[in-house]
Design a protein around this nucleic acid. Sequence first.
DNA 1: ACCAAACGAGACGGTGCGTCTCGTTTGATC
DNA 2: GATCAAACGAGACGCACCGTCTCGTTTGGT
Lengths: 189, 189
Amino acid sequence: MSEDQPRRRSERARLAILQATNDLLHENGLDAFSIEAVAARAGVGKQTIYRWWPNRAILVADALLDRDDIGPVPPRNTGDVAADLSRWAGDLAASLGSPRGAATLRMLTAAAIESPETSRRLHEKFSGPLQELATARLAAADDLRTTPGQRRHAVDAIIGFMVFRVQAHQDLTRRGATEMARMVLRGLR
Amino acid sequence: MSEDQPRRRSERARLAILQATNDLLHENGLDAFSIEAVAARAGVGKQTIYRWWPNRAILVADALLDRDDIGPVPPRNTGDVAADLSRWAGDLAASLGSPRGAATLRMLTAAAIESPETSRRLHEKFSGPLQELATARLAAADDLRTTPGQRRHAVDAIIGFMVFRVQAHQDLTRRGATEMARMVLRGLR
DNA sequence: ACCAAACGAGACGGTGCGTCTCGTTTGATC
DNA sequence: GATCAAACGAGACGCACCGTCTCGTTTGGT
């Protein structure tokens, strides 16, 4: 968000905008969300928002990803891949399956569908790291030899399971995700 | 869509609206989509649309689900569960992974996030039947004894894998889905 | 032939969009 | 400390759609 420009940007305004965006999203949902409301709530001119965020979807993604409601957590390495990754899956499910986590994930998904650039950013900051961390743990396993293709399939099955459950408004529990991950990993040997 | 009313509804208008909705969605995408444009394109009064569809999301879902771009296909039963279900997964991936199928799935997802009622309808007409058909095939397997919980996990992992790949704009091929399903099913025994 | 419901058309007030001035503040540079 | 251009808060602007509301007109069941 603040990479190349050599200018003076107001940090106060930036934080107020992100805060107002998060508040409004969790109060009224993505549908009722408007730039106008953010400007009013943040005590900021609309131009200031449009100057730094090209559209609504990117602002939404930026604000949600700045929070640590949900975030890419690395799996441990105790030497037992199945145990490490099923535990990791359980933790992730606990986070994404909570009311707030699920709401955040759904809004992020909608924002990603709204704009390809947002999709890229979401993948760069969340799903991408998640995939990499898990495949890396799989690749580092001494007790399980796998091909890169197999690793991608297994990891995407585990992540996809959770994404699908949340989006279909079906329950996603730590226990269910743990069992499911163990099952997928069993298929890997 | 036409269940309880004893009134006289114009079939001509209904079809024109669904057709116009599909056309506009695939021409301009979900963002640019408006009821106003549908009315103009279909040669219909706005009131006629609002009379039968309570909101934009439900109209979108109805129109997209009326098409057979994507649809719940049953797996075969040749006696070999792994072969049947991995083939089924491959067929589904070929459908959802195509440009048109992927676009449809993404718009349906966005519509489902927009309105809970749409989410319910999407699940009722698409993901629900998909889950049931696949779990039924698993349950009918002579060569593989599974618990209901295991069946749900396996099926949701396979479906979730595809949904996730499409939404993350990652490639979803028949071959990848086939291999992935085979892997999950291997974990089931 | 009757008649009420559904229809096409479009006017209406309201809301938020994205752009565009304003005059004011701010922070890097001299 | 004075200078000065960029960023700022505020809000006016025209525009696109929203969802509701009349209008006559058409339609299909009785």
